[in-house]
Computed example of a mutant assay.
Amino acid sequence: MICIDGGVFQNNPTTTALVEVFKYPREYANGESITLDDIFVLSIGTGRHNKFVSTRHAYSGGQIAWIRPIIDISMWGNSQAVDEHMERLFLLQSGKRHYLRLNVDIPDEEYADMAISSKEAMDYYTERFKIDYLNNPDVQAQLDQWLIDSEIVAPLQ
């Protein structure tokens, strides 16, 4: 069997997930239909690495040198487009943030390939998660608001 990583065409699968939810009519036990207002999405990415491309390399690197950057740009662009569309769709529908995307930064190129599953790599990703999320007050505020809007937790009195 030949398989292709979903990241080749869908690095942020939120759109696909919503299509699956609404593919068939769904109802609550009381007969009311499930709507977009009833759905909250917490999308957790596998991380992103932004490789710097120097001006010299951009102009003199040639077509072969652009293969990897073009692939990375295409994949990241797709993910960002889905992120933007989902955020707007949910805001337009409910006026609340029913959608939140979290994605850690991976500054070290040696860990940019998510196929690396060594203990060292896992420790690195865990540390990046702590830096970007657990110790980041802006992200914590976004997550707290998302949890309140979704009614997963009640606001503190």
Rank of each mutant, 00 (worst) to 15 (best):
I39L: 08
I39K: 07
I39W: 13
I39Q: 09
F40M: 07
F40S: 07
V41C: 01
V41I: 08
V41M: 02
V41P: 00
L42R: 08
I44G: 03
I44K: 07
I44Y: 09
I44M: 11
I44A: 02
G45H: 10
G45S: 05
G45E: 01
T46N: 15
T46E: 12
G47N: 05
G47Q: 03
N50F: 15
K51G: 02
F52N: 09
F52W: 12
F52V: 15
F52R: 10
F52I: 07
S54T: 13
T55S: 07
T55L: 14
T55N: 02
R56D: 06
R56W: 14
R56F: 11
R56I: 15
H57E: 11
H57R: 10
H57G: 01
H57Q: 14
A58G: 01
Y59M: 10
S60Y: 07
S60A: 12
S60W: 13
Q63M: 14
Q63V: 10
Q63D: 13
I64D: 10
I64Y: 06
W66P: 00
I67E: 05
I70K: 13
I71K: 12
I71Q: 07
D72F: 10
D72Q: 14
D72K: 15
D72E: 10
D72G: 02
I73H: 09
I73E: 12
S74M: 08
M75G: 03
M75C: 02
W76Y: 15
G77H: 05
S79D: 07
Q80F: 11
Q80K: 14
Q80S: 12
V82G: 03
V82D: 01
D83N: 14
D83R: 15
D83C: 02
D83S: 11
E84L: 07
E84H: 15
E84D: 11
E84T: 13
E84Q: 15
H85W: 13
H85Y: 14
H85P: 00
H85R: 12
H85V: 13
M86A: 06
M86V: 02
R88I: 06
R88W: 07
L89I: 08
F90S: 09
F90D: 04
F90G: 00
F90L: 05
L91I: 08
L91E: 08
L91P: 00
L91T: 02
L92E: 13
Q93K: 15
S94V: 03
S94H: 02
G95M: 14
G95D: 05
G95W: 11
K96L: 09
K96G: 02
K96P: 00
K96H: 00
R97H: 01
Y99L: 01
Y99R: 04
L100R: 06
R101D: 03
L102W: 01
L102D: 08
L102R: 06
N103W: 03
N103I: 09
V104A: 10
D105F: 03
D105M: 13
I106D: 04
I106C: 05
P107H: 06
P107M: 05
P107A: 04
D108C: 07
D108A: 06
D108K: 12
D108R: 12
E109C: 04
E109A: 09
E109M: 03
E110A: 03
Y111M: 04
Y111D: 00
Y111W: 03
Y111S: 01
Y111I: 03
A112M: 08
D113G: 04
M114H: 15
M114F: 13
